[in-house]
Nucleic acid binder design. Structure first.
Length: 565
RNA sequence: GGGCGUGUGGCCUAGUUAGGACAUGGCGGCAGCCUCCUAAGCUGCAAAUCACGGGUUCAAAUCCCGUCACGCCCGCCA
């Protein structure tokens, strides 16, 4: 409802500016603690019209006409240079009415077009570590938010199966047996680390690895088979980890498809046509505007490079979607720029990039090859265990299965929230102890508010207060905490929209926390079950509506919404 | 050397795209609140030269210039 309110204020303000003969490009609206929405447009006009902002603000307010009916605005007032707008009773009423049938609106089903989002895309040479985790969670929250905003979303995991490191694993797998007692991706990592050591100690072995790569690119059936076995083995382990985090991909796109399917050749051909190509011996280079070094897209020996394969991949994505989003680590930023320029040359829509800064350990940067990483599996294990202890402390009354279930939901929620709450362009030094410390204002805090709402509704039913009656008079909800909560509820769609256009998933985390805070204050100051009949009815409506939004926002963050904890 | 990003109370963090009303929260610290719907909650207190130095402006955490610190990138790797 906040979006509608904001739009109406914009309109009303625009009309008033015209009537008062002021010209301003923007309404200068901002959320404010002094009003429901506030305009600082008077500041901008002060210079041009050589009057004090306060006088202009008062003048504008005098020209403001709030519609007699069907409006969400209660009043507009000039407070010094600011013009403050407030919502009216119907705003509260409509907000709750809208939540009657849940929050799924008519825009929720793919009508904004198709967006392909690529995230995680860890090399299949070992398990996911905490760096991949940040990528996966930022990506997954965006997926959920975009769906909610009305996009038809397709999620891709781009499988780098043509790199040297995968060849090393395949080479190693010919000599070293996988430890079948281990989770598949961990077994692959063992082989990778061991094989890598062998290759490093004896550089003659590199020839074998190179031979494997050439045969794979050429499509040698036996080699392809070996690759597929190894890559699929690793991916199965990775997928299992992702599943525990409530993350799934629609499509696993293998790099090699673009080589053997001919798409890479086509891209190189198209680039040749463009005239931005130069040759260095038999190698092919692409000149890019504003980037000093030309990009090599084909080796002297004629084999393909990551860059060319990536171009083919993006050309394909572009042809089958309206919007492309790539979630990349900061180390890929230059690549993303090169990609953009190259796609421009191909006259193809470029992706939008969500670039996130690195996660490092207190001991230094992460490295799968050096075995220096914390795997996501280990992290999940430990955080669920920690959550279990917390549940046990509080709810000895529950049976084992239930306690485990809550611990899982709380643990995963906490982990995900922790990763998504900070802005992507902040560098993170990962501290195991900090992560395990189920933070007070993280996901469990929000889940707890939801559980409290559920508890009230459960008890209401048990006491025979009947179904929640959305026709109950909302006007009785006059307490400050009640009004604040409703206003907070009304902002979900607005936040979703902001997070979608700016591609900032952490906005959702912030909103979720604030929503839970609002609910907790309401809970504290407004008894529901013990209120008088007349008041209890609308309060139950508010609890029910809050439960809906809390649950929704938790799901948008990829966390569960437990009914009790 | 060049490019990108970050620097906000003891620690972590929001706000920087579009400059404006007392800089958002958390952790930790101190002091309180369970005869009342789950205390994973709530209330209060202490704690900030918004890295540093200039500049623009009526107004700067936010814009401009410079400096410093940290991270990442600058492969016929992926």
């Amino acid at each position: 409802m906040f979006r509608e309110f904001k739009k109406e204020v914009e309109q009303v303000l625009k009309e008033a500016l015209e009537k008062a003969s002021y010209e301003s490009k923007r309404p200068e609206l901002e959320e404010s603690e002094h009003a429901d929405i506030s305009s600082r447009v008077a500041f901008l006009l002060a210079q041009a019209y050589k009057k004090s902002p306060a006088i202009i603000a008062a003048d504008i307010v005098n020209h403001i006409q709030i519609p007699a009916e069907n409006t969400l605005i209660s009043d507009a007032a000039a407070v010094g240079p600011y013009i403050n707008f407030r919502v009216n009773d119907s705003y509260f009423h409509k907000t709750l009415q809208q939540l009657k049938e849940g929050t799924e609106t008519e825009t929720t089903r793919g009508e904004k077009g198709k967006v392909i989002i690529e995230h995680t895309s860890a090399n299949p040479d070992g398990p996911l570590h905490i760096g991949h985790l940040r990528n996966a969670i930022i990506g997954d929250v965006l997926v959920r938010v975009l769906k909610r905003a009305g996009y038809d979303v397709e999620t891709h995991y781009y499988v780098n199966d043509m790199g040297r490191q995968i060849a090393v694993v395949v080479w190693g797998a010919e000599r070293i047996a996988f430890d079948e007692t281990k989770k598949a991706d961990h077994a692959v990592a063992d082989v990778y680390i061991a094989a890598n050591r062998m290759v490093e100690e004896n550089s003659d072995l590199l020839k074998d690895v190179g031979e494997l790569m050439r045969k794979y690119e050429a499509g040698d059936a036996a080699v392809v088979k070996k690759y597929e076995t190894v890559v699929n083995k690793c991916l199965s382990g990775i997928q299992a980890s992702l599943q525990r985090l409530n993350i799934r991909h629609d499509l696993f796109v293998w790099e090699s498809e673009f080589v053997r399917g001919g798409a890479v050749k086509e891209v190189i051909e198209a680039l040749k046509q463009s005239g931005n190509i130069k040759f260095d011996g038999s190698a092919i280079l692409l000149k890019l505007e504003g980037i000093e070094k030309a990009l090599v897209i084909q080796r002297t020996d004629g084999t393909s490079l990551y860059t060319a394969r990536d171009l083919a991949y993006h050309r394909w994505k572009s042809s089958t979607s309206d919007r492309i989003i790539d979630v990349f680590g900061k180390d890929h930023e230059l690549v993303s720029q090169q990609l953009t320029k190259a796609l421009e040359i191909l006259r193809v829509k470029a992706p939008e990039f969500v670039i996130f800064e690195f996660v490092s350990l207190p001991t230094g940067s992460l490295s799968t090859r050096a075995g220096r990483y914390i795997s996501v599996d280990e992290l999940i294990e430990k955080i669920e265990e920690r959550a279990y202890k917390e549940v046990e402390k509080r709810r000895e009354d529950l049976d084992e299965v239930k306690k485990r279930e809550i611990a899982r939901e709380v643990g995963i929620g906490a982990l995900r929230y922790d990763m998504v709450k900070v802005s992507p362009d902040k560098h993170i030094t990962f501290d195991f102890e900090d992560a395990l410390d189920i933070e007070k204002k993280g996901a469990p805090f929000i889940q707890y508010s939801h559980a409290r709402a559920c508890s009230i509704l459960r008890t209401a039913e048990a006491r025979g207060f009947g179904v929640t009656d959305y026709d109950a008079p909302v006007s009785l909800l006059t307490e400050r905490s009640e009004k604040e909560l409703i206003k907070k509820l009304s902002k979900l769609e607005y936040v979703v929209e902001e997070a979608t256009t700016a591609l900032k998933p952490h906005l959702l985390a912030k909103y979720a926390r604030e929503l839970a805070e609002s609910f907790n204050l309401f809970y504290k100051y407004c008894p529901v079950l013990n209120a008088e009949d007349e008041l209890r009815k609308p309060r139950l409506v508010l609890v029910d509506a809050a439960k809906t939004v809390l649950s929704d926002v938790l799901h948008l963050l990829g966390a569960e919404a437990p009914e009790e904890m």
